[in-house]
């Protein structure tokens, strides 16, 4: 059995205890709600995009340490980034989580996309049940991008 230290890295617990970018954004910001039907967790992602750049992002909702810290780190990582870079980051992150692409093929890591702190979530793949927790915020982010 993989040890819990692979899952609950200190940086993850820090984001869990002190989540960044918590709150809401008023319309016309886009807003998507993500559900994890297995555990009932919910996550809200609010997104302001100005001139093709994610100018602001806020996160709401409730969830476990993995879903909350992933959301918090996601908000830090995408804020200020152009939308195409955000999409590339989502793809890279999902690849790290062993999620295949639309055709069911593994996602090859793109070395030009830097994960930074997000690499702390790598240990989640050793706990397959928790992958949905880690990807919830990212899928919700994609939904918020689609709404624009």
């Amino acid at each position: 059995m993989p040890g819990l230290e692979d899952l609950y890295r200190e940086i993850i617990l820090d984001h869990h205890r002190n989540p960044r970018n918590r709150g809401e954004l008023a319309p016309p910001a886009s807003h998507a709600v993500g559900h994890n039907p297995l555990c009932g967790d919910e996550i809200d992602v609010y997104l302001d995009v100005t001139d093709g750049v994610v100018s602001d992002v806020k996160v709401g909702g409730q969830g476990c340490s993995i879903s909350q810290s992933s959301a918090s780190m996601m908000s830090q990582a995408v804020k200020g980034k152009p939308v195409d870079e955000v999409r590339a980051l989502v793809r890279r992150f999902k690849g790290m989580m062993s999620i295949p692409d639309e055709d069911g093929n593994p996602i090859e890591p793109d070395p030009s996309v830097k994960l930074g702190d997000l690499e702390a979530l790598q240990g989640v793949v050793k706990f397959p049940v928790r992958i949905k927790c880690a990807t919830l915020a990212w899928n919700t982010l994609l939904e918020a991008l689609e709404q624009r």
């Binding site: 059995m1 819990l4 009932g40 476990c64 340490s65 993995i66 909350q68 928790r130 927790c133």
Partner: peptide, 24 residues
Amino acid sequence: HPHDLSQVLDQRNVCVRAGHHCAK
């Protein structure tokens, strides 16, 4: 959070359910 709790309990082979128990 129940998810985290059940994950930690699992380290001691304690099997408990975490979730909405199909009673949202």
